[in-house]
Design a protein around this nucleic acid. Structure first.
Length: 804
RNA sequence: GCUAGAGUGGCGGAAUCGGCAGACGCACCAGACUUAAAAUCUGGGGGCCUCCUUAGGCCGUGAGGGUUCAAGUCCCUCCUCUAGCACCA
């Protein structure tokens, strides 16, 4: 007989809704706080999928256990609802984005409801709610007032298909991450946020938080800090070009110079060039090509600037100058000093253009290396610096350059400022107006929010302008300063804006005086545990750390970092290990699983299927196995209440099992090793399901089960006599005395192989152990005819015998 | 190419410190129940060998070498996979 999951779960869902449980945070001043946060979902038209639930269930388990342990737990949920996909979904279905969002959220909530998740719904937030985005706009104004939000003409990624600009982070391999459509680079005037100002802070902050190592590494790589020097090179005509290098120690190896085709100095140099037409045609050709096409080239290309030289700042040598597209304008200064002997790219170019090479670094030990040799070592052929190590020479050469005004110490970052404008409708309007008299004017804080107008048409325009530009009654406004006629900024914010600070709003969601009250923030921050997708590590996670650090500098938040610990769940694949997708028809519908097996089975299976942070394939037989497990518990419970079942003859053995289980489940949940916690619960069930346990012992088991299978555990707990909810019960604690055994088992090795086991009392002396070990039947047989060379006793563990 | 992580039965995986490899679950096999099937229950469940068979032996954690009384775990070389970055000066 399978267990009646539907009946049980419906019953408890109803009781809980009627107030049998209360998961609201902040109801106790004296309890210690714990803030547990799952990334809020984007409420897509596709509805909830099994991957969302893997993380919500995992954190729900931690939240439930924490509450039972006496913490005041904040475990909230909300909606990250702005963004392109909703707009596209709405266009397709002929409804407004507002309507689409409303419907999708209702659908998500309906699907979340039966899952037994202990969210504090009284703090629900929605980024598209004017009461919320009022504060997103307010935060933007703080950046603006500090000079960190600015307008600039920058090369941006333009997606012609969706007609939207994208940030560098949203583009991969020449395609939009979100839609997979090809993008082009073009210059546009955009709002920018100066995240590069915080590059070092974002790096340093990583040392004080507990993120998965790979997350820290990814953020560090993304920020891409490299130290080196900016070195000035002059032409014989007196023009200066700055280069950046991480290897000042190789400066004596410079044999030519290269500028990016887009370098502003190119036109100037052209005046002195003997071959201007050739240069112009190369530059034009390069500008026509996309980044991808340039990178796809198998051979390096370039053009020599005839008749122009640059003078080596230390040797005075005349260096030929080239323009080549392997030098990129947006890296460093867009110009390099080429050291073909010690750089692979320069080497390749020099080979092709038959340029000289000068070897100036050799390995610490050994001779002049085969070229190119990009490692560091000892300097040779480098004037006064010959003989120094690369590290020493780097420092001394930079000092010399600074002293002679030939260059300076410099740091370069891979990270760029954040392109913050989007030319679409469904986003927060940027709160700026343009006045004919006063110019650019920020909207005063008391006039926020600048609400999105409700409109009929919100399709993107072909000009690249925001659809808001067509709405005259909204665009035309009056200047907050002079009252004259003015026009609103029609760009909206990217969907990363609302999610950059939402964890702050959960702490004080109703506040209409501030984004959140400082004292409340001080109570809850930082977020103790934050879970979200790996794909957000260089986007959302970095952006939101940046906003938080900025707010910390202004004194609006009490901690330097927003999130103390960040973890990530592995994605769930379809059966057979392939990606789940609608088009392949291999998706797993969580609602169907709940219908057939119950939420408790679904939850427990998602935790049991494998290590939490690893990618794993769904297995229909696996979920059936978990259903069998819960069925076993149900039958055990039935026997328990009806009073039949074997009597426990050895209570100390039961106590040993139970207390070991308490320890195991407690430790494993804390370490997020849910799969082994479930297997421990299974082992205990297998061993004791036929026995009649005391209400106390059975109740302890029910409480350990409660975070995983909240409905069934509630039935077990209340059905065996408790009056309150299991979810308000106290988490069981284990007694260390119960899990220390009064027998110690030694393995006996002979020449490295296990030949027997020996059970002795804990404090047996070594001689007795050795004696007993040798006398074991199987051990004695292996020792027959051998001379014992040595015998090692490792306390509590091993007796190791080695023969001649 | 660089950076980080991983490689264990037919499958998902387990194994704080180096100390009985394969917990738990699935697939599968046998038995019970059934007219039969499903469901359920009981037993088996890495490979090979041996009548020491409620036992014993050999092999076995991607490949090869090393350290150690003892290696899935530590060290070296190599291979493969996953993720991120990638002409980053």
């Amino acid at each position: 007989m399978p267990y009646p999951h539907q009946e049980t779960e419906h019953k408890w869902q109803e009781q809980w809704a009627n107030g049998f449980v209360d998961y609201r945070a902040g109801q106790s001043a004296e309890k210690e706080k714990r803030y547990i946060l799952a990334e809020f979902p984007f409420p897509s038209g596709a509805g909830l999928h099994v991957g969302h639930l893997r993380s919500y269930v995992a954190l729900d388990i931690i939240a439930r256990k924490s509450r039972m342990e006496g913490y005041d737990v904040l475990y909230p949920m909300g909606w990250d609802a702005f963004g392109l996909p909703t707009e596209n979904y709405a266009l397709k279905h002929g409804i407004s984005p507002q309507q689409a969002t409303k419907e999708n959220i209702a659908n998500f909530k309906r699907q979340l409801a039966p899952m037994g998740l202990s969210f504090d719904w009284s703090r629900e937030i929605n980024t598209t709610d004017p009461g919320y985005y009022r504060w997103t706009q307010w935060l933007f104004l703080q950046f603006y007032h500090q000079g960190l939000a600015y307008k600039a003409e920058v090369p941006v990624y333009w997606c012609p298909n969706s007609q939207i600009t994208l940030a560098a982070e949203e583009v991969s391999d020449g395609k939009s991450i979100q839609t997979g459509e090809p993008v082009e680079k073009m210059p546009m005037t955009q709002w920018m946020l100066a995240i590069t100002e915080y590059a070092d802070r974002l790096l340093e902050g990583l040392d004080e938080v507990d993120y998965l190592e790979e997350i820290k590494t990814q953020q560090r790589n993304w920020i891409g800090r490299s130290e080196g020097a900016r070195i000035y090179f002059k032409t014989e005509h007196g023009q200066t070009v700055e280069t950046f290098t991480t290897r000042p120690d190789t400066i004596y190896g410079v044999t030519y110079m290269v500028l990016a085709p887009e370098h502003p100095a190119v036109s100037e140099l052209l005046e002195h060039a003997s071959n201007p037409d050739e240069i112009r045609s190369y530059v034009e050709e390069a500008e026509r090509q996309t980044d991808r096409e340039r990178q796809a080239k198998t051979e390096k290309t370039g053009v020599h600037i005839g008749g122009v030289h640059m003078i080596h700042p230390l040797t005075g040598a005349y260096l030929p100058v080239y323009i080549a597209d392997y030098v990129l304008m947006d890296v460093g200064t867009g110009a390099i000093m080429a050291v073909p002997a010690h750089d692979e790219r320069d080497y390749e170019f020099a080979r092709r253009f038959e340029l000289p090479m000068e070897t100036v670094v050799k390995p610490d030990q050994g001779d002049v290396p085969e070229l190119p040799y990009p490692e560091t070592g000892e300097l040779i052929n480098s004037g006064d610096w010959t003989g120094l190590t690369s590290a020493e020479a780097t420092q001394r050469i930079i000092e010399y350059l600074e002293q002679e005004y030939l260059g300076q110490r410099d740091v370069n970052y891979k990270m760029r400022d954040w392109v913050f404008s989007r030319q679409r409708y469904w986003g927060e309007p940027i709160p700026i107006v343009y006045c004919e008299q006063c110019g650019e004017v920020p909207v005063p804080e008391d006039q926020l929010p600048v609400e999105l107008p409700e409109v009929e048409a919100y399709e993107p325009t072909e000009t690249g302008e925001s659809p808001l530009a067509n709405i005259d009654r909204w665009v035309n406004t009056e200047c907050p300063e002079c009252g004259g006629s003015a026009k609103r900024e029609t760009d909206t914010m990217p969907n990363w804006a609302g999610s950059s600070w939402y964890y702050l709003r959960y702490i004080d969601p109703q506040n209409d005086q501030a984004f959140a009250d400082y004292d409340k923030l001080a109570e809850w921050l930082p977020v103790d545990l934050y879970n979200g997708g790996m794909e957000h590590v260089t986007l959302h996670l970095l952006y939101s750390r940046f906003w938080h650090q900025f707010l910390y500098d202004l004194g609006y938040v009490p901690t330097r970092e927003p999130y103390q610990k960040r973890v990530s769940h592995g994605i769930i694949l379809a059966e057979g290990g392939v990606k789940m997708s609608k088009s392949k028809g291999n998706t797993i519908d969580p609602m169907e699983m709940v219908e057939n097996f119950g939420a408790d089975t679904f939850r427990t299976y998602e935790m049991f299927m494998g290590p939490y942070d690893e990618m794993i394939a769904w297995d229909m037989n696996g979920i059936k196995g978990v259903y069998r497990f819960l069925t076993k518990i149900w039958h055990w419970y039935t026997r328990q209440t009806e009073g039949y079942g074997e009597t426990v003859s050895d209570d100390s053995h039961l106590q040993y099992s139970l207390h070991s289980l308490i320890k195991k489940v407690t430790d494993d949940i804390e370490a997020m090793k849910f799969n082994t916690a479930v297997s421990a619960l299974m082992e205990f069930t297998n061993e004791w399901q036929n026995y009649q346990l005391s209400a106390e012992d059975f109740g302890a088991f029910a409480r350990l089960l409660a975070p995983f299978a909240p409905h069934l555990a509630e039935e077990l707990w209340t059905g065996t006599g408790a009056q309150n909810s299991v979810h308000h019960a106290e988490w069981p604690s284990y007694d260390p005395d119960q899990i220390t055994s009064d027998i110690v088992t030694y393995q006996i090795h002979v020449n490295g192989k296990v030949r027997g086991m020996l059970e002795v009392a804990p404090h047996t002396d070594e001689e007795t152990i050795k004696q007993n070990a040798r006398e074991q039947d199987n051990v004695a047989r292996h020792l027959e005819g051998q001379t014992i060379k040595k015998m090692i006793v490792i306390p509590q563990k091993v007796v190791s015998i080695v023969t001649e």
